[in-house]
Write a protein that binds this DNA or RNA. Structure first.
Lengths: 339, 339
DNA sequence: CTGAAAGCGCTTACAG
DNA sequence: CTGAAAGCGCTTACAG
C-alpha cells in the first residue's frame, strides 16, 4: 500500500517514468490516450509522488514556511489562518515553526527550513532585529517580514500602522474630554510597542501641549495590565483615561478597576489596541483600535508569492491601518473640559 | 549566500562528502580533529543541509503533518500548540493543513503529505469517517486520529470522553435542583456532538426517569445557539436549565436570554462544554466541562512519535476526561425540587 | 510524442 | 577512520 513509486506506475502502464511524469504533471507533449491510461493506473495504484524527490529535482517545494515567536493566542491563530487561506488558493503547503520567544533559536529555525520551503514569512517583533535578513539564516530563501523592524537590504516587510493608530486613539480620548491620559506601555524590546508609545507621546504633545505624559511599564500580559491599573489608582491626581498598548493589558487594568470599585467609564475611561474577541464581550465593552490580523497574514503571504513568481503583482507594502472601534469604556466625560 | 551544498563544504575542508555527512551528523567514526574542522567550515560557510535531499536518502523527513478540518478559533489553535510543543522537544517540523470543512479534500491533503512527513495527525470529526485509515490516503504513513470515530485496522485514536462529560453535566444540573433540562445539539455528522447527546439522553433517563428529553438542533455556532435560545423561551412549560453541546452555542443562548430580559441563572440555568476562554469572562460566568485541548494535542503527538520509534512508550489511548467547572450560570435552583 | 540518461543533494553500505 | 560509489524518487534537457 505504501511506497508506490513512479517506476511502479511506469511498469504497469508500459511506458517510461519520464512519460508518467509528463502525463501526471499535465505537460502537453503526451497523447491524450496515454495521459488517460497513466492517470487511471496511477489513481488505481493509489500513487502519489514523493514530495522530497520532486523538490530535489525540480527545485521547488510548493511549501512556504512561517516562523513565529510563539503560537499562543488569538493573534497568531488569526495570522496563520490568513496565511493558510492564501497558501491554499495556490496549492501550497504550510510549515509552521515557533521559537517560543527564544530569539537565539530563530536563525536556526529559519535555516532548518532550507529544502523544505520555497520562501519564508518571518515575524520578529524585536526592536533590534536588523540581523535576520542578512543572517543568511534565511539560507538564501525569499523572505517577507511581518511586524518587524524593516531590515533594509531588499527586505520586504509588512506591518501595522501602530503609530497612526495610537495617535488616533489619543485624539479620540481627548475629543471625549479627557485630559490626564495615562499610557501602559508594551515590552521594551517590542517594535510595535515602541511605535504605539511614540504615537501616544506625539499626539499628547500636539493636542495637549504642556501636559506631562504618564507612562507605566507593561509587557502585553493581562497581569502587567492589572499591576499598572492598581498603581494608577494610587496616583494623585488620578488620570481620567488610560490607554493600554494592547487589549490584554487593558483587560487586566479593567479588572483592577472593577475590584477597586472604580467604574469605567464614569470614573475613568479605558482603551486598548488590537480588538481581540474578548474586547467585545467584557463589560463595559472595550474601546480599541482594530487590527485586521487575518488580512495581515493574507497580504504578507501574497507578497511572498509575488516574490516567488506565483502571483502577478505584489500587494503594496504599506502598513495596515487599524480602525478605531468605540465601545462603552471610553464614553465622553461628563461636564467635560475640567482640566 | 544561498545554495551551499555538502560538496562545497567537502572541497573547502579537503575531505569527502561522506566524511562531511558523518561529521555533521555526529557519527562516531570520525576523528575529533576532522569533526571540528568540518563543523567550523560548515558554520563559516553558513551551510545547512538540504532537507529534501536528506529526506530522500535517509527516508526520514523529521516532520509530522497535521490535517485539520479548519484552523479557525481557540480549539485548533490550542491543539496545534500542544502538538508543536511535543514536536519541538523532538526537533520535528510541523506541517499544518486544513481542508476547510471540505471533506472530500481531506484524502488529498493526506496524500499530498507523502515525502514531506514521517507521520500524520488527523482530525476527522465526522460521524462516518471510517474510510480514512484504509484510504491509503495516508499513503502508508503512520497515523493517529484525533477526535474521530475509531476506524479500526490498527488505527490509533485519541479523543475526549464526551459521553462521560455530558453525563457529569446533567448530574450537576439535576443536583442543582433542575428538572426540565433542555439540550442544544451539535452538528448531525459530528462525532463528538453525538457522544454528548447520548450522554445527555442516558443521564436524563437514569436520573429523571419519565422525563422527556428536549433536544434542539444546533451546529456548534454562536448563532445556532441564539436561535435555540429564542425558541426555548417560547416553550411552555419553559425549561429551567439548558445544556448546550458546546460553549459557543451556550453563549449564543445566553445573549438570547439577556436580550429577552430573562436572567441567568435566576430564571434559567445554563451550561456549555469546552471551557473556551470566553466562558470565564461573560456575565454570568458559564458553567462548562473543561477539555484540555493542549494536552489532547500533545498526547496525540506523543502517540505518533511512539509509532515512529521516537519515543519509548506511547501514552495510553484512553480518552481525556473533561472536568466540571462550576460558575455562576448554573447556581442551585431556589426553592428546589418543584417538578 | 516518447525514452534513456543525467542530475538534484544527500546518506550509507562496501572496501580498504 | 576515510573515500568512491550506489541509490533515494523524481524532473528535464537531449536525442530520436
Amino acid at each position: 500500500m505504501a511506497g508506490v513509486t513512479i517506476k511502479d506506475v511506469a511498469r504497469a502502464a508500459n511506458v517510461s517514468v519520464a512519460t508518467v511524469s509528463r502525463a501526471l504533471n499535465g505537460h502537453d507533449n503526451v497523447t491524450d490516450e496515454v495521459r488517460r491510461r497513466v492517470a487511471a493506473i496511477a489513481e488505481q495504484m493509489n500513487y502519489s509522488p514523493h514530495a522530497a524527490a520532486r523538490s530535489l529535482s525540480s527545485r521547488r517545494t510548493h511549501a512556504i514556511g512561517v516562523v513565529l515567536p510563539d503560537l499562543y493566542g488569538e493573534f497568531f491563530s488569526e495570522l496563520v489562518r490568513g496565511i493558510d487561506q492564501v497558501a491554499r488558493e495556490h496549492g501550497l503547503h504550510l510549515l509552521v515553526s515557533s521559537y517560543h520567544g527564544h530569539r537565539e533559536e530563530q536563525g536556526a529555525a529559519m535555516r532548518a527550513m532550507r529544502g523544505r520551503v520555497d520562501g519564508l514569512l518571518v515575524m520578529s517583533p524585536y526592536a533590534a532585529s536588523a540581523g535576520i535578513v542578512g543572517d543568511g539564516g534565511a539560507a538564501g530563501l525569499p523572505l517577507v517580514l511581518i511586524n518587524s523592524q524593516d531590515a533594509g537590504e531588499g527586505a520586504v516587510a509588512l506591518g501595522v500602522a501602530n503609530y497612526d493608530g495610537a495617535v488616533a486613539m489619543v485624539e479620540h480620548l481627548v475629543d471625549c474630554g479627557h485630559r490626564r491620559i495615562a499610557f501602559i506601555a508594551g515590552p521594551d524590546d517590542n517594535f510595535d510597542a515602541h511605535q504605539r508609545l511614540s504615537g501616544y507621546r506625539d499626539a499628547l504633545a500636539r493636542r495637549l501641549p504642556g501636559t506631562e505624559p504618564l507612562v507605566l511599564p507593561g509587557d502585553f500580559s493581562e497581569s502587567s495590565g492589572h499591576r499598572a491599573g492598581v498603581e494608577l489608582l494610587a496616583r494623585t491626581p488620578r488620570p481620567d483615561a488610560v490607554f493600554a498598548a494592547n487589549d490584554m493589558m487593558a483587560l487586566g487594568c479593567l479588572f483592577a478597576f472593577t475590584q477597586a470599585g472604580v467604574r469605567v467609564p464614569d470614573d475613568i475611561a479605558l482603551a486598548g489596541f488590537d480588538d481581540i474577541p474578548l474586547a467585545r464581550f467584557v463589560h463595559p465593552g472595550l474601546t480599541t483600535m482594530r487590527v485586521d490580523i487575518f488580512e495581515l497574514g493574507a497580504r504578507a503571504a501574497r507578497m511572498l508569492l509575488a516574490r516567488l513568481g506565483d502571483e502577478r503583482e505584489s500587494p503594496p507594502a504599506t502598513p495596515l491601518q487599524p480602525q478605531l472601534v468605540v465601545r462603552e469604556s471610553s464614553a465622553p466625560r461628563r461636564g467635560a473640559d475640567s482640566s
